[in-house]
């Protein structure tokens, strides 16, 4: 009898712990759907009687809002890899990670993919399902757009990873990882097109956004999905994304080698 009581007590504690995780997921899904709802109504007010603005139709903008939110949750806003790198730099764990018989960046990339898959299932899928019921979400414009979108999305997540990796390495020079995360979030939510499609930006800001790689994280994949970028142009977009992957890879490599030397100096 006493044993049973003890077992029940332990079970109860574990249920409470699991409930914390469950409530975390619910809260996250709720807040993200709330954002979709707010943006939906703002865009409806912006369009008013018009059916098309800057080549994006009223129904396309709804799809844009939903997909950009999904990429936003899983890419930009998620604590991602930069926070983790900042943390392991701070507590010295990085020296152990560097000793592993696998390239540090490659290992981090694998880790990021794991986080992505996890958050996609836990947060992404519920948001898609609820948004679809509330507002409807259109399918890719054509079969080809769908296929190209998947490739573009994977490249986008790779670019996002490289940006995160770069920001994480700044942790070698400052200990405020939280501040870096917030800066990243504010900057990227804008320049990636996660809040507003780049096409809506006024003149000079649009030129800046077009030049930087951040638009390739959200804006480029979605315009491919919607069919606004298609055919030869879509292929060109993919090539540009690929070029950014290469450029950012080189940048992070150089930064990494430089930053590592600083560690050795400190350790010596």
């Amino acid at each position: 009898m006493i044993l049973l009581k003890k077992m029940l007590a332990i079970a109860n504690i574990n249920i409470k712990v699991i409930l914390v995780y469950v409530s975390a997921v619910w809260a996250n899904v709720f807040v993200n759907i709330l954002q979709v709802v707010i943006l939906y109504y703002i865009w409806m007010a912006v369009y008013g009687g018009q059916t098309q603005l800057h080549g994006i139709s009223k129904s396309q903008i709804v799809t844009y809002v939903i997909i950009s939110r999904i990429i936003f949750i899983n890419g930009i806003v998620s604590w991602g890899i930069n926070q983790w790198i900042s943390d392991i730099i701070k507590d010295g764990q990085i020296s152990i990670e560097m000793l592993r018989p696998i390239d540090f960046q490659l290992m981090t990339y694998a880790r990021r993919i794991g986080v992505l898959v996890f958050s996609m299932i836990l947060y992404g899928v519920p948001v898609i399902v609820v948004s679809k019921i509330l507002f409807g979400i259109s399918l890719p414009a054509t079969f080809n757009s769908g296929v190209l979108f998947i490739i573009s999305f994977l490249l986008a997540m790779t670019i996002n990873f490289l940006v995160e990796f770069f920001i994480g390495l700044i942790g070698f020079y400052t200990t405020n990882g939280w501040g870096l995360q917030v800066f990243k979030e504010a900057l990227l939510s804008f320049l990636s097109g996660a809040l507003i499609p780049i096409a809506f930006f006024p003149g000079w800001i649009r030129q800046i956004a077009d030049f930087l790689p951040f638009k390739d994280i959200v804006y480029t994949p979605i315009t491919i999905y919607l069919g606004n970028t298609s055919g030869e142009q879509a292929i060109k977009s993919l090539l540009f994304q690929f070029m950014w992957v290469v450029v950012l890879l080189l940048c992070t490599r150089i930064f990494y080698t430089t930053a590592i030397k600083k560690v050795t100096v400190q350790g010596g």
Binding site: G179, A186, S189, P202
Partner: peptide, 18 residues
Amino acid sequence: ASLFMQMSGIFFVWVIFK
């Protein structure tokens, strides 16, 4: 950091009104 975050919010409204 939180200032910067808020500014991106107001920037959103600004772009909408462009």
